[in-house]
Amino acid sequence: MVKKNTVKKESNEEQRGRRDFIVVASYAMAGIGAAAVAWPLIDQMNPAADTLALASIEVDISKIEVGQAITVKWRGKPVFIKHRTEDEINSAQSVELSQLKDPQADVERVINPQFLVMVGVCTHLGCVPLGQKTGEIRGEYDGWFCPCHGSHYDSSGRIRKGPAPLNLEIPPYQFASNSLIKIG
């Protein structure tokens, strides 16, 4: 009889442990299930397949004269393509890195020094800087000037003065041929 009682007591404790385990396991499964259901509902906000398919463009640059710039749309944003003059290339290359807020040599920012390709979105708060068209204000460094909050970019698109923290972004691109570049 006595032996029987102790056995019963042990099994009660064991049962308690098992029950806790089942409860914890159930909560864990419910949590995993909830996360699995929530993920598609959140992930649907990421770019859809057709949006991603439009993420690269090709641009013919053979028609851009020296000193001229064009703006193309890539991923809904303006991309500046500037055919730089000798003066502009020289002034961009001769700047001491110590003078720069976001130090970066001009050679790091171009594939072919004649063509500067960059995203035309001010790194401050996203406005499009002026300087693409003749007659537009080009800032104190003969490059681009953002009219929203007065950021000055040089002929390499680097931030020189004003609130913007970084140089104008260089998108991923490559020369498909001498006259054709592929952005994205």
Partner: peptide
């Protein structure tokens, strides 16, 4: 509703886009 367009020219295609292109659509 985040991916649907209530316009006669776009509604059908926006639903098909949900089915094919939108993640988990």
């Amino acid at each position: 509703a985040m991916s649907y367009t209530p316009h006669v020219d776009h509604a059908f295609q926006s639903v098909e886009r949900i089915m094919r292109d939108v993640n988990h659509g």
